[in-house]
Simulated scan of single mutants.
Amino acid sequence: MTVSQIELGDGLVVSKLGFGGMALTHVYGETEPEEALKTLHAAIDAGVTLLDTADVYGKPQPGAVGPAGTNEELIAQILDVRRDEVQIATKFGITGQVGPGVGTRGDRDYVREACEASLRRLGTDVIDLYYMHRRELARPIGETVAAMAELVQEGKVRHLGLSEVTATELREASAVHPIAAVQSEWSVWSRDVEREVVPTAIELGTGFVPYAPLGRGFLTGTLTRDAVASSMRAGQARFDTNFGANQKVVHIIREVADELGATPAQIALAWLYAQGERLGIPVVPIPGTRSAARVRENAAATTIALSGDQLARLDSASDLVEGGRNLSFASDDWISAGRE
């Protein structure tokens, strides 16, 4: 099947399903570059045109300072042969390896420096969607967005996005330049953005790009304790100490999947599409995978219709979740819910 197109905000048209490139690097296990490229080609062949990466994604080199950039370099190999078939989204703002003590910057010099570095690694002359990955909390967000807007004026960036911002921050940013998309975690078991951020995005005409739409693999029902222990999920309460308790959420998703002859991953994605329709906001999830077969499985979710009863049961799943969604090493203000 071929994934259909949808408009986010600011006139940005992309595929209804995106691809989260972070999964192709070391955070969830190693991937051979050849297999990663096969997966990316399979995504584009299925009609997935929005490829999402970030300057911080990848395996840091020993002794290196600053963002790794190796994920962008991987994506560059696809852009070299299929640039006119995709929209590339990347991010700046996290100044080093994601982990304890990670820093952020949003000053004009850094924004411009980060953009130039991403363009160079990606091997392209324009970024379709450029996100502020995390904001520098001591700096007014409008200052950072003004620097990003300069990049649009110069033709280096086509559209602007923000990741993990509050409703107030989104308003302040939108007063400086139109924001095409907000990227934050949103799924069956992570719904805090529905309180304030999503309604504000609707009001401002901003689309939504949910990351971790499959709960970092948990909602697929295939995640094992060993896989948790060997990845960035280790130490996070949802996956670690509450692994067993949160199987109740998976059980509900699997029940609905069995009724429709679908997979749990497809149902989790279908719920997001249905939620977007109910709330009135364009939604483009960006699940990541290292498997071409999983790409095709995820693409099939774009056409699944859920009944009212099935939606109600899936809605109730969020009340059963044990453990918060914030990363174990980060302070509460790392995600928008911690600053609301």
Results as ranks from 00 to 15, higher is better:
105 R>C: 08
105 R>K: 12
105 R>V: 07
106 G>K: 00
106 G>D: 01
107 D>W: 08
107 D>L: 13
107 D>T: 08
107 D>M: 12
107 D>C: 10
108 R>I: 08
108 R>S: 15
108 R>V: 12
110 Y>K: 02
110 Y>E: 02
110 Y>D: 03
111 V>Q: 03
111 V>Y: 02
112 R>M: 11
112 R>T: 09
113 E>L: 10
113 E>Y: 10
113 E>P: 04
113 E>F: 13
114 A>G: 03
115 C>I: 00
115 C>K: 00
115 C>M: 01
116 E>P: 04
116 E>D: 13
117 A>M: 01
118 S>K: 00
118 S>L: 02
118 S>G: 04
119 L>K: 01
119 L>R: 04
120 R>D: 09
120 R>W: 03
121 R>F: 08
121 R>E: 01
121 R>H: 05
122 L>Q: 01
122 L>R: 01
123 G>Q: 00
123 G>I: 02
123 G>H: 02
124 T>G: 02
124 T>S: 02
126 V>K: 06
127 I>G: 04
128 D>I: 07
128 D>H: 10
129 L>I: 07
129 L>A: 01
130 Y>H: 04
131 Y>R: 00
131 Y>D: 03
132 M>H: 03
132 M>Q: 11
132 M>T: 07
132 M>D: 03
133 H>F: 12
133 H>D: 06
134 R>T: 09
134 R>Q: 09
134 R>V: 05
134 R>K: 12
135 R>C: 13
137 L>M: 14
137 L>Q: 15
137 L>A: 14
138 A>Y: 11
139 R>Q: 15
139 R>P: 11
140 P>K: 02
140 P>T: 06
140 P>F: 10
140 P>E: 06
140 P>D: 07
141 I>R: 05
141 I>T: 03
141 I>P: 09
142 G>A: 12
142 G>T: 09
142 G>F: 14
142 G>I: 15
143 E>W: 15
143 E>P: 11
143 E>C: 14
144 T>Q: 10
144 T>M: 11
144 T>L: 11
144 T>E: 07
144 T>R: 07
145 V>A: 09
145 V>T: 04
145 V>C: 09
145 V>L: 14
146 A>P: 11
146 A>Y: 09
146 A>Q: 13
146 A>R: 13
146 A>L: 13
